[in-house]
Design a protein around this nucleic acid. Structure first.
Lengths: 211, 211
DNA sequence: TTATGTGAACCATTTCACAGCC
DNA sequence: GGCTGTGAAATGGTTCACATAA
């Protein structure tokens, strides 16, 4: 059973909405209501949810608590993943204390940088290691996921070093550059400047009179 | 002529790659080479590029300098957009000094928060205003784009206040929540925890023996 | 011969429309 | 009657295959 990425993304959103509805003590919710919140079609919501089994009640809707639990199970993690954060620039440091970046599913286990002034210091209670130590430390601490917040020209080198550990499975990169990662490693990229460029492109297009 | 979002995203990537190739003094590039860097198909690159007119030379490839200029024109901004950054938590403060978040196409003109301790102080050389002042300040400074780095429960309120200015056109939100924005305003959301959840979901799936 | 540009074929995802159950 | 679940249709995006031009 392989799930498409857009579906996973929406499932995560449903999860968040269900949590809110549950906090507001709403008992039942319709696909219509969820769809309105996310500005998508109700049929999309139903298709997504039915993909993981019949969970709603026809003529009634979805029982909030039950659906919330159901989605939580779909997204459940087999463990709390250990993360390594590489690059203690402004963004990297911010992430060590960014509240939404806290979860029972993962936690930063170690931070890395290549600036001698930063090595050995503490960041958010975490000891900073030199990037060269990644192969050893990732293995020792079983860090399977990397969060990359290094400048673009340093990113590929970090990936290579991390891969040497033999335990790397996934990367969440904020570096605005194209990375080569060995096949089984999953790469997700969040590129702030790319998103901004897209936004501005469509703003410009919208402004055109013939739109 | 409406361009699909995946196409715009790739165009932005081509732009970055072309800049690099130009710095390396490479004269000519093939769709094949660009495709390999981005791990996409060469036909995709050709389709994207041909969308904006014939720019390559058959049997030869694309002239790097010419193509770079061409793409720069496609992405060109009619002006430098004024941004308002709302929410001076760790992420917001980081963005005020994050090097990749600098461009000739936009610049932060003002920052906002609702914490009295922050009002009036300087952040990255910018005076911090109270969020309640958004309607006035956005209008005065002609800030058409908002960067939202506030906690999820404050995000909608910020959107509402900003919209009151009458000049709001686009929002880049980092807040992990669903927002309602009036029709003509464009909203792009970057949600770190959602990306992380997606990554972990597929890591879990990959680990399954029957994959 | 080589590599682009592009209609046509293909594939994935969304939306419709209605049968099925509460 | 109301709302879910789901095949079927529609849409949107990607890839193929080849004519075309350097």
């Amino acid at each position: 059973m392989k799930v498409s990425e857009p579906t996973v993304e929406r499932i995560v959103q449903y999860h968040r909405i269900l949590r809110q509805l549950q906090e507001e003590d709403q008992r039942v919710v319709s696909s219509q209501q969820i769809a309105e919140i996310l500005k998508i079609k109700a049929s999309q919501v139903r298709k997504d949810l039915s993909y993981f089994g019949e969970i709603g009640k026809r003529g009634v809707g979805y029982h909030v608590k039950r659906l919330y639990k159901h989605i939580a199970d779909i997204l459940a993690s087999p463990k709390s993943w250990n993360l390594g954060l590489v690059g203690l620039g402004s963004l990297g440091q911010a992430l060590t204390r960014y509240p939404p970046f806290r979860s029972s599913k993962y936690h930063i286990e170690a931070v890395f940088d290549n600036d001698p002034a930063k090595i050995g210091r503490d960041y958010g209670g975490l000891h900073c290691f030199h990037s060269d130590e990644m192969p050893r430390i990732l293995k020792e601490k079983n860090i399977e996921v990397l969060v990359l917040t290094v400048p673009p020209d340093a990113a590929q080198d970090c990936v290579n070093k991390a891969y040497k550990s033999g335990v790397l499975k996934g990367i969440l990169s904020f570096s605005p550059t194209s990375l080569v990662v060995p096949k089984p490693v999953l790469l997700y990229t969040m590129d702030i400047s790319v998103e901004m460029e897209k936004l501005l492109f469509y703003l410009k297009e919208n402004g055109r009179s013939d739109e």
